[in-house]
Lab assay of single mutants.
Amino acid sequence: MTEYKLVVVGAGGVGKSALTIQLIQNHFVDEYDPTIEDSYRKQVVIDGETCLLDILDTAGQEEYSAMRDQYMRTGEGFLCVFAINNTKSFEDIHHYREQIKRVKDSEDVPMVLVGNKCDLPSRTVDTKQAQDLARSYGIPFIETSAKTRQGVDDAFYTLVREIRKHKEKMSKDGKKKKKKSKTKCVIM
C-alpha cells in the first residue's frame, strides 16, 4: 500500500485542523484551538488504489514558523489553505509557496490551493482571484467548507493525484537520464 505524506499549511484560523478532522473523523470542530502540530493517518481508496494518507496539520501562528522547514522537508505534497473571508490569509499563500519551493529546492512541488469556509456569506476573496492565482502557479484550486464537508475529500484526493503525477514524471525523467548515460565512448 502506497503511503502519501501530505502537509496542510496556511495562516492561523483558516480551518486547516477543521478540514483535516472532517476528512479523518467526519465531524466539524467549530471551536478554535490553535494547533502546534498534529499528525493523522487514514486509509482510503483513490482511483481504485488503496493508500495510506499521513497528514500533518501544522501551526499557522507566526511564533511556530521555525518548525516549518522541518515538516516541509518531509512532506510530499501540500494543501495551501486560505479562508475566503480573510484576504490576508490569501496573500500569505505566496509566502508559504515560496518557502516550500526553497526548502524542497524545487520549482515543481505537488500543491493544491484550497479556499476554505465557502459556506460563509462574508467572502472577501473572489473565486476568480483564487483561480487566477492557482493557474499562475500551475496547481489545482478547490473551494471547501469544513463545516458542510463540501470539497473536503476532493481537496485531499486531488493532492494525492498531483503527487502521483509528480512521481510518474520524475521516474520518466530518471529513465531518460539513465538511457543517456548508457551511451559509451570508444577510443581507438
Score class of each variant (00 low, 15 high):
44 V>G: 10
28 F>M: 02
109 V>I: 09
166 H>T: 11
2 T>H: 13
34 P>H: 00
162 E>F: 03
187 I>M: 04
165 K>V: 14
127 T>N: 07
161 R>W: 03
33 D>H: 01
121 P>C: 08
97 R>E: 10
67 M>K: 11
34 P>F: 00
170 M>E: 15
100 I>N: 03
61 Q>W: 01
25 Q>W: 13
17 S>R: 01
104 K>L: 07
3 E>S: 11
83 A>V: 03
125 V>Q: 10
87 T>N: 06
73 R>V: 10
8 V>D: 04
131 Q>F: 12
174 G>Y: 06
145 S>F: 10
158 T>W: 09
99 Q>H: 12
79 L>E: 01
157 Y>D: 06
18 A>T: 07
43 Q>F: 10
81 V>S: 12
2 T>D: 13
172 K>E: 06
42 K>E: 05
51 C>P: 14
61 Q>R: 04
111 M>K: 02
42 K>Y: 09
169 K>M: 06
69 D>F: 10
72 M>L: 02
69 D>Q: 09
115 G>M: 12
134 A>V: 12
48 G>I: 06
9 V>S: 12
26 N>F: 09
21 I>T: 02
63 E>N: 02
114 V>R: 02
124 T>V: 09
55 I>N: 04
20 T>H: 00
109 V>K: 03
23 L>F: 12
21 I>A: 02
100 I>T: 04
127 T>M: 05
84 I>F: 11
30 D>R: 04
161 R>G: 06
120 L>Y: 06
23 L>I: 08
67 M>E: 01
59 A>M: 00
45 V>G: 13
92 D>Y: 05
3 E>L: 10
154 D>Q: 07
67 M>L: 13
110 P>K: 02
61 Q>N: 15
176 K>S: 09
39 S>V: 01
45 V>D: 11
64 Y>F: 04
63 E>G: 02
172 K>L: 04
73 R>N: 12
6 L>T: 14
188 M>L: 04
50 T>D: 13
19 L>A: 14
119 D>F: 03
102 R>T: 06
87 T>G: 11
124 T>L: 08
175 K>G: 11
71 Y>I: 03
38 D>T: 00
142 I>R: 10
97 R>H: 14
60 G>C: 01
33 D>A: 00
132 D>E: 06
67 M>N: 09
22 Q>Y: 02
33 D>V: 00
56 L>V: 14
156 F>S: 02
62 E>K: 04
79 L>V: 05
81 V>Q: 09
102 R>V: 06
5 K>Q: 13
102 R>Y: 10
61 Q>E: 11
26 N>A: 14
61 Q>L: 10
166 H>I: 08
121 P>S: 08
48 G>L: 07
53 L>C: 13
162 E>G: 09
159 L>C: 05
150 Q>R: 06
173 D>Y: 14
103 V>W: 14
32 Y>S: 01
186 V>L: 09
36 I>M: 01
74 T>I: 05
15 G>P: 15
23 L>N: 12
125 V>E: 12
49 E>F: 10
77 G>E: 15
164 R>H: 11
160 V>D: 03
166 H>K: 06
55 I>E: 00
62 E>D: 09
101 K>A: 14
149 R>S: 06
64 Y>T: 01
5 K>M: 04
82 F>K: 03
180 K>T: 08
96 Y>P: 02
62 E>F: 02
96 Y>G: 02
111 M>I: 08
108 D>F: 05
15 G>M: 15
188 M>P: 15
98 E>D: 07
33 D>K: 00
133 L>M: 08
173 D>N: 08
124 T>Y: 08
19 L>H: 06
132 D>H: 08
185 C>M: 04
149 R>A: 04
20 T>I: 04
58 T>E: 05
21 I>V: 04
44 V>D: 12
9 V>A: 08
99 Q>F: 05
124 T>R: 10
153 D>N: 07
176 K>L: 15
38 D>G: 01
153 D>E: 07
108 D>S: 07
9 V>Y: 03
139 I>P: 15
165 K>W: 05
80 C>G: 06
113 L>S: 03
32 Y>V: 01
141 F>G: 08
62 E>Q: 06
71 Y>F: 05
68 R>F: 02
160 V>L: 09
20 T>F: 00
82 F>T: 14
30 D>K: 07
9 V>N: 04
42 K>V: 08
4 Y>E: 08
131 Q>I: 09
83 A>I: 04
82 F>D: 06
113 L>Y: 12
131 Q>V: 09
174 G>V: 06
127 T>S: 07
46 I>G: 07
72 M>A: 04
77 G>Y: 13
129 Q>M: 06
121 P>Y: 06
27 H>R: 03
167 K>N: 07
13 G>F: 11
154 D>W: 05
7 V>Y: 04
72 M>F: 03
136 S>T: 05
111 M>W: 09
74 T>C: 06
42 K>I: 09
186 V>K: 13
175 K>W: 11
69 D>L: 06
101 K>Q: 04
25 Q>F: 15
124 T>K: 10
100 I>Y: 11
5 K>D: 07
25 Q>H: 05
12 G>Q: 14
58 T>F: 00
135 R>A: 03
122 S>Y: 07
82 F>Y: 07
178 K>Q: 10
39 S>P: 00
34 P>A: 04
16 K>Y: 15
58 T>P: 00
59 A>S: 13
105 D>T: 07
33 D>Y: 01
160 V>T: 07
23 L>P: 00
79 L>H: 02
23 L>Y: 08
35 T>V: 00
156 F>I: 06
60 G>I: 00
38 D>I: 00
123 R>W: 06
166 H>S: 06
174 G>S: 09
50 T>G: 07
85 N>S: 09
175 K>Y: 11
133 L>E: 09
180 K>V: 13
4 Y>V: 14
86 N>V: 08
124 T>W: 09
156 F>G: 01
169 K>F: 15
98 E>R: 12
127 T>E: 07
102 R>L: 13
59 A>N: 01
6 L>Y: 04
128 K>W: 05
48 G>Y: 08
139 I>D: 06
100 I>A: 03
12 G>I: 04
120 L>W: 12
136 S>K: 04
153 D>G: 07
30 D>F: 05
96 Y>F: 13
10 G>N: 01
13 G>E: 14
37 E>G: 15
186 V>I: 15
74 T>Q: 13
68 R>Y: 01
4 Y>C: 11
17 S>N: 00
81 V>F: 05
13 G>T: 10
188 M>G: 14
68 R>S: 04
88 K>T: 11
179 K>R: 04
49 E>T: 11
13 G>Y: 12
125 V>L: 08
151 G>F: 12
54 D>A: 13
108 D>T: 05
23 L>G: 06
37 E>P: 05
167 K>Q: 05
27 H>G: 12
23 L>V: 09
134 A>N: 10
140 P>H: 03
176 K>V: 14
60 G>Y: 00
2 T>Q: 11
152 V>Y: 10
51 C>H: 14
62 E>M: 03
98 E>N: 12
155 A>M: 13
24 I>Q: 06
156 F>H: 10
79 L>F: 03
63 E>W: 01
38 D>E: 00
76 E>G: 04
95 H>A: 14
70 Q>I: 04
123 R>T: 11
35 T>E: 00
34 P>G: 00
108 D>G: 06
116 N>G: 08
23 L>R: 12
118 C>E: 08
24 I>P: 00
122 S>M: 14
17 S>P: 01
40 Y>I: 00
66 A>M: 14
120 L>Q: 13
4 Y>T: 12
113 L>T: 05
137 Y>N: 15
177 K>N: 11
130 A>I: 13
48 G>C: 10
121 P>H: 10
33 D>G: 00
112 V>A: 09
110 P>W: 01
18 A>L: 00
163 I>T: 04
119 D>K: 03
120 L>F: 09
32 Y>W: 06
127 T>P: 08
